[in-house]
Write a protein that binds this DNA or RNA. Structure first.
Length: 593
RNA sequence: GGGGCCGUAGUUCAGUUGGUUAGAAUGCCUGACUGUCGAUCAGGAGGUCGCGAGUUCGAGUCUCGUCGGCCCCGCCA
């Protein structure tokens, strides 16, 4: 017989009754009746009940063994009687009559229980990640993560893509986030950088003639974390294709995304071909470039309605070139006053001066600003918004950009507060037509708004003739449920267009050559038109798993301050290591108290 | 770098206008119990109320500072 097991803890059924079996696993739970002791023995595959009778010489040891100890048991598979069957577990019709019992590894007192899904402080969880990962929630998330990777590889390969590896030790990139640097021993004072993304390598692979690239690629960025942004490192499903249009690429990504969500979740998808929303429309309708399309509450233009309004805050904004926007929330007019006060509190917390509102209730328009509105304005509002008895309107007024962004946040707040957000939906869209350039207020100059490698719409001609701030790029984002899943672009593979684009952003030809020498050179020897995208792998798993925080789908994440409290990283290194790397540590001066 | 919220038993939390010996649940330890499946029952241990200073006759509670955690802004081509 195998020293550890003949079966797993999730395997045995009624048909196995009578067999002598051996199981190994963790003591998940104990029920001690003095005269009989039940163990729930758990492994990766499931839970099986072990029955230990007091005539056994190991009874006392088994009775006092702590939960989460690892044991090996041997005995006969026995059928359970009618009312002792446990329908909640797959092995609930049988149990093991334990004849032999061996403790493989004893557990100390646990920092938190493994057999229940309660909330525990994250620092304690992270310091004991190996225990946390035993729990059902994280264990399931890791399996799901593996399935996402597996299905992605299967699907992409079936679609004719090839997976490549690109370097981890590479050069520091001149744009973007801060790099993680790795000192060179051989070249004193020189550093490698960990890639922020394999951006240039995948484009070079296209120039190398490989046509369809993908990689589940590790990316490293030294930036502060967010709930949906892992500090330090994360993975992207990196994709690049030659001789394709933006639409061709969208089609490929739609196929992959729809398959992942259909096979690995029960979520209702809005469409197999995702709607396209131009960037500017998204900003006007949703107040951001990552709209949650699971609910309405769009921002409605009302600036023109209030051009001559008695309400000074509205009128003055209109006169100074600002905007008034309104959100119609259906059926909330009879919410208590607190609902409206809380919404205003939220808006103020986000930097608004206030949040005007009107409730259409009992045949009247009610709310603090109603008395300033004329009958014509009310009529225009009713027509524009479609508001009827029972609805409420929320107003934002001010500088157009700020107002859109603020009401965008109010929109999501209201969606949550009213309960319009269905977690069982996955609603996707493409945000397209991002501006190529934007005005940098701080430096008083025109800058690239996204990726400098994007192809401007209209090509060289547009760059030469149009106002840079009106030029759009073949730059797009994939958005799901208010989460930016991915960013991509049709690349600029024409050196002369690159030069012109960089010139507009204030860089000369020399800068382009010296900043991106590899791409610059490569594009002079026959470069195919190509386009790509890089969906965030961890974020997809997050959405599929319904997890609010990206750390819940990463086996060993860094904490918010980019530390690994379990492995003690980052940590100091020895003098010898520093010397070999020609490094000297100069700590920042301590702040005097 | 900035803002918000939070720090009370191993853990999750309660703790009144500042007032006697800081509570509950769960976990832990001991004991009882032959059919449970979050077993049950009885008993016990477990706290520098994050840390420091201040106000006060008296601080878990009020004030200031500080440290830590999470969330957000900045940042993320």
């Amino acid at each position: 017989m195998h020293p550890f097991r003949t079966h797993t803890c999730g395997q045995l059924r009624k048909e196995d009754v009578g067999q002598n079996v051996k199981l190994s696993g963790w003591v998940h739970r104990k029920r001690d009746h003095g005269g009989v002791l039940f163990y729930d023995l758990r492994d990766h595959y499931g839970i099986t009940q072990i029955v230990i009778n007091p005539d056994k010489d190991f009874f006392d040891e088994a009775e006092h063994l702590r939960l989460e100890s690892v044991v090996t048991v041997e005995g006969a598979v026995v059928a359970r009687d009618g009312d002792t069957v446990n329908p909640d577990i797959a092995t609930g019709e049988i149990e093991i009559d334990c004849q032999k019992f061996h403790v493989e590894s004893e557990a100390d007192q646990l920092p938190f229980p493994v057999n229940q899904e309660l909330e525990y402080p994250e620092d304690v969880r992270l310091a004991n990640r190996f225990l946390d990962l035993r729990k059902e929630r994280l264990h399931k998330n890791m399996l799901l993560r593996s399935q996402v990777a597996q299905l992605t590889r299967k699907h992409m390969t079936e679609r004719g893509f090839t997976e490549y590896h690109t370097p981890i030790l590479t050069s520091s990139s001149p744009e973007g986030a801060r790099d993680y640097l790795v000192p060179s021993r051989v070249y004193p004072g020189h550093f490698y950088a960990l890639p922020q993304a394999p951006q240039q390598f995948k484009q070079l692979l296209m120039v190398s003639g490989f046509d369809k690239y993908f990689q589940i690629a590790p990316c490293f960025r030294d930036e502060d974390s967010r709930a949906d942004r892992s500090p330090g490192e994360f993975y992207q499903i990196d994709v690049e294709m030659s001789f394709v249009t933006q639409e061709d690429l969208f089609h490929e990504i739609e196929l992959l995304t729809v398959r992942l969500f259909k096979e690995l979740s029960n979520k209702e998808i809005n469409a197999e071909q995702f709607p396209h929303i131009p960037y500017r429309e998204s900003m006007e309708k949703y107040g951001n470039d990552k709209p949650d399309l699971r609910f309405g509450l769009e921002l409605i233009e009302a600036t023109d309605i209030f051009s001559n309004c008695e309400l000074k805050v509205f009128k003055s904004q209109v006169e100074s070139g600002g905007a008034v926007k309104v959100i119609r929330a259906e059926g909330v007019a009879d919410q208590p006053r607190k609902f409206f006060d809380d919404a205003e509190k939220f808006a103020k917390n986000e930097g608004a001066k206030g949040l005007a509102w009107i409730a259409l209730r009992e045949g009247e328009w009610k709310g603090p600003i109603v008395k300033f509105l004329s009958e014509e304005e009310k009529a225009a509002l009713a027509e524009r918004t479609g508001a009827v008895e029972g609805d409420a309107l929320f107003f934002g007024a001010g500088d157009r950009k700020t107002t859109n962004e603020l009401l965008g946040k109010v929109r999501v707040y209201l969606g949550n507060a009213i309960g319009l957000i269905d977690p069982n939906k996955a609603h996707f869209c493409w945000i397209v037509d991002f501006p190529m350039f934007e005005y940098n207020e701080e430096e008083k100059k025109v800058d690239f708004s996204h990726n400098p490698f994007s192809m401007p719409q209209g090509g060289l001609e547009a760059l030469e003739k149009e106002d840079p701030l009106n030029i759009l790029a073949f730059q797009y984002d994939l958005v799901c449920n208010g989460v930016e899943l991915s960013s991509g672009a049709v690349r600029n593979h024409r050196p002369e267009i690159m030069i012109k684009a960089f010139e507009i952003a204030g860089y000369d030809e020399h800068t382009v050559k010296s900043k991106f020498p590899a791409l610059w050179n490569a594009f002079h020897f026959g470069a195919p038109p190509h386009a790509g995208i890089a969906p965030g792998f961890d974020r997809i798993v997050m959405l599929l798993a319904d997890e609010p925080n990206i750390r819940e789908v990463i086996a060993f994440p860094l904490n918010q301050r980019a530390q690994d409290v379990m492995m003690n990283a980052p940590s100091e290194v020895t003098e010898k290591q520093l010397k070999e790397l020609h490094l000297q540590i100069k700590l920042p001066p301590k702040v005097e108290v």
